[in-house]
């Protein structure tokens, strides 16, 4: 099955391992990821602060490319990109005044868009199009016995009226995927609270505090590792984890995996192939999974 794929800036940058793992897992599951032609940054969580019009138009440019490629929907591994595109589509549909202005901007760039393309998270593609049963069949190295904190963050779930895939209060998708790998899903109260990434460039002390809250809450509820669905959570919780833990003088670390990294491990890929960092690699070695 061919899938229009929108990697997003982060997974083509510092969170490259998100893209690497997603590509590997997709291949195993017979998903042919077709990267959206000449895609641009969605400006998620940023551009709509500057101008709703520009934000919407930028996102629709991507969706227009998807349409030209012959697809009705696109899939992204990043919750923020997902949220950004869905909110743009929603506003475009519901606000006639905005629609008019956005159409004008697109026309300015010789583009036209009919509002028909849907955007979804790669997790949704996995659950809806591939199915948990098929995923289970690919599990070669079950992660039995590992207590895996299941984190959702914010943008994948909210607002529900725009995202619409699962309950914003009792989400199950990450839990179901974790369970499919044989690991033991661990829910924790802050599972859908913000990781603080959006504040890192603006109000770093609070941004880091929120990240520490998430990590601590998962750990305190028995998680040995943490799984999440977002390229930007990845930057925050995985890539800069040592900075966070230094800041809060924590003497522990919590290995953090993007959801396709976890699937990749269970499919038999090595941590190196999946681009895992040292914290995760060390822990998997310690637990005898490597």
């Amino acid at each position: 099955m061919k899938v229009a794929y929108y990697p997003g800036c982060a997974s083509h940058g510092i969170a490259k391992d998100v893209d690497i793992a997603t590509q590997l897992v997709a291949k195993d599951l017979d998903l042919e990821l077709m990267e959206v032609d000449d895609w641009n940054c969605c400006g998620g969580g940023f551009m709509d602060d500057k101008s709703e019009e520009i934000h919407t138009a930028l996102n629709l440019r991507n969706l227009e490319k998807v349409k030209t490629m012959g697809f009705e929907k696109m899939s992204t591994p990043c919750s923020v990109c997902l949220n950004s595109h869905r909110i743009a589509s929603d506003k475009y549909e519901k606000d006639p005044e905005l629609r008019e202005n956005v159409d004008r901007r697109l026309k300015n760039a010789d583009m036209e868009y009919d509002g028909s393309v849907d955007s979804e998270h790669f997790i949704w593609t996995l659950i809806r199009d591939v199915g948990i049963d098929k995923i289970k069949k690919h599990v070669k190295k079950p992660l039995k016995g590992i207590k895996m904190g299941t984190y959702y963050g914010c943008q994948l779930l909210r607002p529900y009226e725009v995202m619409g895939f699962e309950s914003p209060y009792n989400p199950k998708s990450v839990m179901d995927l974790v369970a499919a790998t044989g690991a033991e899903p661990v829910a924790f109260p802050l599972k859908s609270s913000c990781c603080g990434f959006p504040l890192v460039g603006i109000n770093p002390p609070v941004g880091l505090k929120m990240a520490n809250n998430i990590l601590s809450d998962a750990k305190n509820n028995g998680a040995e590792m943490l799984v999440h669905p977002c390229s930007l959570c990845h930057l925050q919780l995985d890539v800069t984890q040592l900075k966070i833990q230094n800041q809060f003088k924590q003497d522990w670390t919590l290995p953090v995996l993007y959801v396709t990294q976890l699937l990749g491990l269970s499919f038999g890929y090595t941590p190196e192939e999946l681009g895992l960092g040292k914290i995760a690699k060390d822990y998997l070695r310690e637990r005898g999974f490597v």
């Binding site: 940058g13 510092i14 969170a15 000449d38 101008s51 440019r61 300015n108 760039a109 890539v239 040292k278």
Partner: peptide, 28 residues
Amino acid sequence: SGKIKYAFTKDNNVKNINEIKKIMGDKK
């Protein structure tokens, strides 16, 4: 933490950057 290797990964620019500039135009 073994995370430095992707820190300087640089993606391609948008090829048709004029489209972006035209879309962005004036802020409103």
